[in-house]
Design a protein around this nucleic acid. Structure first.
Lengths: 113, 113
DNA sequence: ATCAAGGTGAGCCATATGGCTAAGTAATTG
DNA sequence: CAATTACTTAGCCATATGGCTCACCTTGAT
């Protein structure tokens, strides 16, 4: 799914993760954010575009300043996917466990014969 | 952190996510996996290299076949980061809530004066 | 009306990504 | 030993990424 691609791609860059971490503490302007990351504005805007296209950040212009904020469900797509895969994975491990237990049990009873 | 970069980058590609999803159901050989994804072996190996460099998948060679499996803590780095950011985010929302409630309460008492 | 500040758009550059084919190498099979 | 199978390596190609500067446009302050 293209949306998940974008979400994880957004998260794959340290600068963007830092932006998300910072926006979690409240909105900020593009200029503010760029300054904190020692980066030229146009470079930084590319990151913001990536974050907006992945629907993790929203922005609107107030006067000549653009304010950015984290969107409410910014992280849920990623978390949902991870949680689901992890459930599958753990379910299988449990199966393996019981398989091994079953084997062990059988071994035991065989040994006792 | 470079490791998180790699983890999220791994997850940013649909093919790689599919591989993870499939490996959650048990180990498989490179050839098997490549066939399922209608992809030439060398192209596919690049994906596997990405997954191995992010420590999400391990592989070893058995005869001429390379078997791959999900590593136990494949998803925890990603999940941990997401969970932490989300906690910060929700903590702030709660602060906002109580701030708004406090405001509302004050308004009330002012109105009653 | 002018000038400064904040953002935007265009475009350059080096490197990375994601696909391929072609030509190996090593292990099985006949 | 010969042929096949399963990877592996090298390298091509188009496109994407992540940084930059320079020029421009709005908006705000004098």
């Amino acid at each position: 799914m293209a949306h998940l691609d974008r979400v994880f791609h957004s998260l794959s860059d340290g600068t963007r993760r830092a932006v998300i971490a910072q926006l979690a503490n409240g909105p900020a302007s593009i200029g503010d954010l760029a300054r904190r990351h020692h980066m030229a504005l146009p470079s930084f805007m590319k990151h913001m575009r990536v974050l907006e296209e992945s629907k993790m950040v929203a922005s609107r212009k107030v006067g000549r300043v653009r304010m950015c904020q984290l969107r409410p469900k910014a992280l849920t797509a990623a978390q949902t996917w991870l949680a689901r895969e992890r459930r599958v994975w753990e379910a299988r491990l449990n199966q393996l466990d019981s398989f091994v237990e079953a084997l062990a049990a059988e071994e035991h009873s065989n040994g006792r014969k």
